[in-house]
Write a protein that binds this DNA or RNA. Structure first.
Length: 549
DNA sequence: TCGCTTT
């Protein structure tokens, strides 16, 4: 490897135009150049210093740490306000927690500090270390080993606060930013609470599945399932990723009764409930990941049906998300019993680690040229691109290919299960340089390498924005998010700009001077710029206020 | 609003 190659890589960029930068691309293919279609070497195949998927940009780092500090200052200011406004009969507790940085990269990336706020009665003390958790709640040596084996050496903020709450059998509403370890924060307590696999005959847990974990997309359910397998290693836990195929095996009662944990999407589970092949009467732990999505209008009827089917008197419920708008939070808290609410960081705010920017592209037709310009400059693969519809995702992926960009993948829910699985698998292996996808990839997906997110089409809610850009900057790494906006995106622009400002970054001044969106902003951000609609929204807002009085 | 997800 030449000095030039090192410099290219350490700058964090690989040129995209394969012909123009043929030599650079070939440098990545050392030892694999026999195959034309081979993608660049990556991960363990590269010496650490040349691994551009892991390389932290030195120059940018300092600036980001500074912005984290600034942000912390801003947070405590706001926090004081919040606390003084809180209700009297609730215990308020406010402490600093240290979030785990990526174990992969401990030497490079500083640990991120997040403020943690808890609200509720008798909040259990947080656990600073997994050892403290073990001593207090009798974690098996097995589980401890699986944690360390998989690189979990220190609990993140949500893990050290959330796990004790769940282990005390309490209901929980947890809000923690993207990429801060929410999955482990509920899976670990679940495994501890279940004590032993039902198949091991060490428990008298009764028959039938005891824990259900629900997620909005198949890909996310699959990812959660993979995390389950990491913690289950070496014991006879039966964890099932629910699908049509696994559901069919449930007609056999003997099989059905030996299941410990089911990970599923809601509709799949409801289908099995309705066919009578599954009983949830022994479920003790019910967990909703991406809770605000799960409690929206489309999923809520299914969720209600599942909750109603969990008839055991001691069922513990917990909801998790990076965003929880007021209406979703109300539904969640109504569903929970004497809940504790934990907020890590500032609610509905992206991580300061993600460098966000807005790019003006006059109209839809200007987007592709802008994107191609973007790719003609150094950038950090892999890149995740979001579009608003399935056909737009497919055609953009095609356009990029036609323009000589290689290793482009596409993923949307209109594709077959196998196509979807293949696309995720290529992404996991680092074989995709560019993935074009729809909202289906926006939530929960943890592709550790993603360095840049591009919102090719403007997100229509702040929640969507926060989740989309949260595909980068995970586990303490830095990331970059670029959002294209056109003239027609005006109504949404200010809300997104506010999110960017809230996370301690700047936006062009003229955007901050745009007129305020309607008063319904909290519920449905953006709205429309047609004045009659704004007026209508105002009217509704006023009527609601009158009703309350 | 519409499009996104879920069989």
């Amino acid at each position: 490897m030449s000095i030039e190659a090192f410099q290219l890589l350490s700058r964090g960029g690989v040129q995209f135009n394969k012909n123009k930068y043929k030599k650079d691309v070939e440098l990545f293919n050392v030892g694999k150049s026999e195959s034309k279609s081979k993608r660049p070497a990556q991960g363990s195949e590269l010496p650490a210093a040349l691994d551009f998927f892991k390389y932290a940009q030195g120059a940018e780092r300092k600036r980001k740490i500074d912005s984290v500090k600034r942000d912390e200052g801003g947070r405590s200011e706001k926090k004081r306000k919040k606390v003084s406004e809180s209700e009297g009969n609730m215990d308020e507790d406010e402490e600093e927690a240290t979030a785990k940085s990526d174990t992969h990269n401990n030497s490079v990336i500083p640990r991120q500090r997040h403020r943690v706020t808890t609200k509720g009665s008798n909040v259990p003390e947080c656990a600073e270390t997994f050892e403290a958790l073990r001593d207090r709640y009798q974690l098996s040596s097995h589980l401890m080993l699986n944690l360390s084996k998989n690189g979990y050496s220190y609990p993140t903020g949500i893990q050290s606060y959330g796990a004790p709450i769940l282990l005390q059998g309490r209901d929980l509403a947890a809000i923690s930013p993207t990429g801060t370890g929410k999955t482990i924060s509920y899976l670990l307590p679940t495994f501890v609470s279940l004590r032993a696999p039902v198949a091991s005959a060490e428990t008298d847990a009764g028959l039938g599945v005891r824990a259900i974990i629900l997620a909005p997309t198949r890909e996310l359910a699959h990812q959660i399932y993979n995390e389950c397998l990491k913690l289950a290693q070496g014991r006879k836990w039966r964890v099932v990723l629910f699908s049509k195929a696994t559901a069919n095996t449930f007609s056999d009662k003997a099989v059905r009764d030996k299941i410990d944990i089911i990970v599923s999407t809601p509709l799949r589970l409801v289908a099995s409930l309705q066919s009578g092949s599954l009983s949830l009467s022994n479920v003790r732990h019910l967990i909703f990941d991406e809770a605000d999505r799960m409690l929206d209008n489309e999923f809520l009827p299914q969720i209600e049906e599942i909750v109603a089917a969990c008839t055991h008197p001691d069922v513990q419920k917990a909801v998790f998300s990076a965003t929880l708008p007021a209406n979703a939070e109300k539904i969640a808290l109504d569903m929970l019993r004497d809940p504790i609410r934990v907020v890590v960081g500032l609610k509905d705010t992206p991580l300061p680690l993600i460098a966000q920017s807005l790019t003006y592209v006059a109209d839809d037709g200007s987007k592709l040229p802008s994107l191609l310009t973007y790719f003609s400059q150094p950038y950090n693969p892999p890149v995740l691109i979001f579009t608003s519809t399935q056909p737009r995702a497919s055609s953009l992926a095609e356009e990029l290919l036609l323009n000589g960009i290689s290793n482009v993948d596409c993923l949307h829910a209109g594709m077959s299960t196998k196509e979807r699985q293949d696309a995720v698998s290529r992404m996991r292996k680092g074989e995709s340089w560019v993935m074009v996808s729809t909202e289906v990839m926006a939530r929960g997906m943890d592709f550790k390498g993603v360095r840049e997110v591009i919102n090719y089409d403007f997100p229509t809610t702040v929640q969507s924005y926060i989740h989309r850009i949260g595909r980068t900057g995970r586990a303490g790494r830095s990331g970059k998010a670029v959002t294209f906006f056109t003239d027609t995106d005006g109504p949404y622009l200010k809300s997104i700009a506010n999110v960017i400002l809230q996370s301690g970054q700047s936006v062009p001044e003229w955007i901050t001077k745009l007129p305020k969106p309607s008063k319904m902003k909290r519920k449905q951000m953006g709205k429309t710029k047609r004045p009659e609609m704004v007026n209508a929204a105002r009217k509704i807002g006023r009527n609601d206020a009158i009703k309350k009085r």
